[in-house]
Design a protein around this nucleic acid. Structure first.
Length: 460
RNA sequence: GCCCCCAUCGUCUAGCGGUCUAGGACACUGGCCUUUCAAGCCAGCGGCACGGGUUCGAAUCCCGUUGGGGGCGCCA
């Protein structure tokens, strides 16, 4: 039988990392088994659902590379894939349950909807609002095999009858999932652990219909550093935020995969990990989201990128955040050695992009204003003017001999020059930086700094 | 309150009764490298929640306690 799994977000906000992880595991499972990954939008909460949120969730999923085979945008043989478009189905099946004696109508006072008037098994026609309520069998054990946690058993003595169809005609979550998962031929339900206690209710519904339930797997939740549910208080949770901050989607997915899943080599491309994915290898305890490890991992991915890939990642990130600038590959290549995200890389590259870069106050105080600065810069200027082409080797040789000639430490000379050509004290390697800037720009920057130095003198 | 799930370094984990003086990764600390900052390499710090069993032997099995998480909606 073909494996069919689904990711079923409710479009009430952004895609957060928890949802992304659930989606990833479903995607991995489908791909591993050559099955289908379905996207279903659970928009039965008319108050909170929105099309904007649905769209942003789909955008984020695509950015992560978690493409679906069937969904509201691309269709499929089991549509519609938006629950709000399946209302007739839910009504039909809810009424069928009433006919079979597993459910009943609950009628409320139209002036006081909280007040239950009576229950009946005939569709009410008195104009009062009514719901369809599932009748939970008394004193039954409901058990299921969870793919991660083994057998889980509940007793119906702790369960009350529950509404399956609201008075506005919309289904309630527990009912809609069952109808949809069955009708869409879902074989495996991989979802968050917060759904464990919903499972017995759903199984009762499958039984009432005489349907076979899918296999269930409940994935542990992601927590913040203080072990409370991950929220904005702990930092970012939205996938889009990480994108904005300059994380690579491959790195984010890699981190999400590794979070609770132990593998020999931690750094990988999830596309190549499909064959190794075994859902029962996932840890069965809640995990704490570690921002530092994510950043470390992103740095690893960033530095491993090929030149063209680095260029295109940088370009699409800048488009995404609305930065209008062109970073030459030569600059990107030397900057990425020092940073972990595209955003950090961009900020590191700024002094290379603008001739009117600013000087850090610390540079001026600690180096430019020192008496030795002028001679260092003038010597450097003269040296670079006499060089035709720059290479890392001859730049290094040039600067070292200036230090030797003047009898200054290399640190003093290098830092003075570094600030003179880039305005900052923390930059990529000096020799690489100067080589990338090229002879002319290096000379004009040295001149500019020398002019500043003189202004400083006369002003003082 | 009731029901369910979970429990190894700060964090993510390896471990599935003896090979564990508990291994790895991130973080942290120190060293090397060195032109700043990183990267890289090396070293160090640091843990089986507690109490009972079972067993010749327990991080590993059982029970309890404690702790954390989830659920108990005309939310999903």
């Amino acid at each position: 039988m073909e494996v069919r799994v689904r990711f079923a977000p409710s479009p009430t906000g952004y895609l957060h990392v928890g949802g992304a992880r659930t989606a990833l595991f479903n995607w991995l499972f489908a791909r591993k088994h050559g099955g289908k990954f379905i996207l279903r939008i659970e928009d039965t909460d008319t108050e909170r659902s929105s099309r904007e949120s649905e769209q942003s969730i789909m955008n984020d999923l695509k950015w992560l590379g978690l493409y679906w085979d069937e969904g509201p945008d691309c269709g499929g043989n089991y549509g519609p894939y938006r629950q709000s478009e399946r209302l007739n189905l839910y009504k039909k099946y809810a009424y069928e349950l009433v006919e079979r004696g597993h459910a009943y109508f609950a009628v409320y006072d139209k002036d006081d909807p909280k007040k239950l008037l009576y229950t009946t098994t005939k569709e009410p026609t008195d104009g009062n609002p009514f719901t369809v309520v599932f009748k939970v069998p008394e004193n039954r054990k409901v058990a299921f095999q969870d793919m991660l946690k083994g057998e889980i058993e509940f007793s119906t003595e702790h369960m009350d009858d529950f509404i399956i169809l609201k008075s506005n005609g919309f289904p309630v979550y527990n009912f809609a999932v069952v109808v949809d998962d069955h009708l869409m031929n879902i074989t495996h339900v991989l979802r968050g652990e917060d759904h464990i206690s919903n499972t017995p209710k759903q199984i009762l519904l499958y039984e009432a219909f005489g349907w076979t339930p899918p296999k269930f797997m409940h994935i542990p939740l992601i927590l913040g550093a203080d072990r409370t549910p991950l929220s904005k208080r702990h930092g970012a949770t939205a996938v889009e935020h990480f994108r904005r901050e300059g994380y690579l989607s491959k790195a984010l997915v890699n981190y999400l995969a590794i979070l609770g899943w132990s593998v020999e080599e931690e750094i990988f491309d999830y596309q190549e990990k499909i064959k190794d994915f075994e859902p029962d290898q996932i840890s069965n305890k809640n995990v704490v989201f570690d921002y530092q490890k994510l950043e470390w991992l992103n740095g690893k991915h960033l530095r491993a990128l090929g030149v063209e890939k680095l260029e295109s990642e940088l370009k699409s990130w800048m488009e995404f955040v609305g930065v209008n600038e062109k970073i030459p590959n030569s600059v990107a290549l030397i900057c990425r050695e020092k940073v972990n995200t595209l955003k950090q890389l961009y900020e590191f590259a700024i002094p290379f992009l603008r001739e009117d870069f600013e000087y850090e106050q610390e540079y001026i105080e600690k180096f430019l204003s020192k008496p030795e600065a002028e001679i260092i810069l003038e010597k450097s200027l003269a040296a670079f003017e006499s060089l035709q082409t720059l290479s890392i080797e001859n730049v290094e040789q040039t600067l070292r001999s200036i230090a030797a000639e003047l009898g200054f430490g290399t640190n003093k000379v290098f830092q003075t020059v570094r600030g003179a050509v880039l305005g900052r004290l923390v930059t990529p390697g000096l020799f690489e930086s100067i080589t990338v800037l090229g002879r002319d720009r290096t000379i004009s920057r040295l001149n500019r700094t020398l002019k500043l130095l003189k202004n400083l003198r006369s002003g003082a």
